[in-house]
Design a protein around this nucleic acid. Structure first.
Length: 421
RNA sequence: GUGGCUGUGGUGAAGCGGUUAACACGGCGGAUUGUGGUUCCGUUAUACGUGGGUUCGAUCCCCACCAGUCACCCCA
């Protein structure tokens, strides 16, 4: 019986890993452009970090974490997202002592115990940005721009940018009260989910897809109508900057992020053709998180992009380039005498920087040429008894079909020379 | 976690109570003597997701489980 991989995980086979390299390279180039540096935090953390950082009542923490007890009886959790870890690392490594803001990016696997679906895996990969230490709307705008730039560079259009403000500890409670007051006498008409949301997170009720709930919540006050001066300033400032940068966005008063730590700016980028998993990027400000994790009050903002979803979108739009699998030289020995020489030549050519392979299957010359063609290989070097005796090899150009006998020591320079043209 | 749909070889797929379980692609080999990409020929493969049940008999019917998928939930 063959053992299968765990549910919700995926192997990245050679063809797909080329795609990952492509996207990852884009990430690295872009982050360099925007002056963000890579941080790599552990894949597991003390469970406590996520409980405190993300919030115990959130779905992610309450039902989606991979938590286990290690041999030292510590409660350990595979990271479901990376912001809490980055903030932990920021504090632990005293990055607050470095020039502010600290601009970091990360890429790597995250884990959530969810029911798998296309675009939703239990081990999935995110590229994320965290800018810690700056409060104003400029950094918010920069981060949103970085995200939209990323998608644009990949050629991805048809994206929707939604922005909202979720307020701060000053104004959110006031709004919450107002909203609850509005919904109070409608409570019985709401769906089961929404009834439980009423206490836990009433803002989510506005987001419910249930028709009845939609009707009942119609006319409810919006967070953005209740923002305090500071939050209002931040929100308007961001919009001005985005407009100045020529970014089109949609104000979505119902946009709420799922993690407790978000304050003020919240945004999401969607790619609608992906269906239910259309959220391809989500982010926002988390001004209270650093303090929550035991540091000085420090503002921060970040986003995370789901790379599997990006890849799905690129596939759908046929935006993935052809990745070359070809090699420079395939060496085809005929007979035992040729093999040793072939192996020597293989090694020598590789050391000179040419990508090479040779037959290891004892195939006929014909089959070897077929193999070389499949790579495809630009040159095939044939080494039979004749060649060995004459200390020469046959070099065949697979594009033109031309071939010539060359002395061993001339092979590398001949190929290198031709390839330069 | 809830509900719907699906599950045949490496891949795409026919068959739907009794079949040597098609076909295509791929893989491998060959079409004389040491030469590829097209074509032709041959060959290959532990294929009916797993476990029960109904039946004389199950790939086909029923149940459970597993997995995928879609939607919900949530989110990237």
């Amino acid at each position: 019986m063959v053992i299968s991989g765990p549910r919700g995980t995926k192997d990245m086979l050679p063809e797909s890993s080329c795609r990952w390299h492509y996207v990852e390279q884009m990430v690295r180039d872009l982050c360099r452009l925007y002056a963000y540096q890579e941080i790599r935090t552990p894949i597991f953390e003390h469970t406590e970090l996520f409980l405190r950082g993300i919030g115990e009542t959130t779905d992610v923490v309450s039902k989606e974490m991979y938590t286990f007890t290690d041999k030292g009886k510590r409660s350990i959790t595979l990271r479901p997202e990376n912001t809490a870890s980055v903030v932990r690392s920021f504090l632990e490594n005293k990055l607050y002592a470095e020039p502010q803001p600290v601009k970091l990016y990360y890429m790597g696997p995250m884990f959530r115990y969810d029911r798998p679906q296309a675009g939703r895996l239990r081990q999935f990969h995110q590229f994320g940005i965290e800018a810690i230490g700056a409060a104003g709307p400029t950094i918010d705008a920069e981060i949103i721009l970085l995200a939209t730039d990323f998608f644009q560079k990949l050629g991805l259009n048809e994206l929707t940018l939604l922005i909202n403000s979720v307020g701060c500890p000053q104004c959110r409670p006031i709004y919450r009260d107002k909203l609850q007051a509005f919904l109070h006498d409608k409570l019985d008409g709401l769906c089961e989910d929404c009834q439980s949301r009423f206490e836990r997170n009433p803002m989510r009720i506005l987001d419910c897809k249930n028709e009845n709930c939609q009707t009942l919540s119609h006319g409810a006050p919006h967070m953005t109508e209740c923002l305090c001066d500071e939050c209002q300033g931040q929100f308007l400032g961001l919009q001005t900057l985005l407009q100045a940068a020529g970014i089109t966005f949609t104000l979505d008063p119902r946009l709420v992020r799922g993690l407790d730590y978000y304050t003020k700016t919240a945004f999401e980028i969607q790619y609608p053709p992906l269906g239910a998993q259309s959220a391809i990027c989500g982010g926002g400000r988390y001004d209270g998180l650093v303090e929550e994790c035991g540091g000085q009050p420090t503002p921060g903002i970040g986003f995370a992009i789901g790379l599997e979803r990006v890849l799905l979108a690129l596939e759908k739009q046929q935006l993935l380039p052809d990745f070359k699998t070809g090699i420079d030289v395939y060496i085809a020995p005929i007979g035992d005498k040729g093999k040793t020489l072939a192996f020597q030549l293989l090694h020598q050519l590789r050391r000179s920087g040419l990508s090479c392979d040779m037959d290891m299957m004892n195939r006929s010359i014909k089959a070897q040429l077929k193999r070389a063609n499949k790579y495809p290989a630009r040159y095939v070097i044939i080494i039979g008894d004749e060649e060995v005796d004459q200390e020469k090899v046959m070099v065949k150009n697979m594009d033109s079909g031309e071939q010539c006998m060359l002395a061993l020591q001339d092979v590398q320079s001949m190929i290198a020379g031709e390839m330069d043209n």
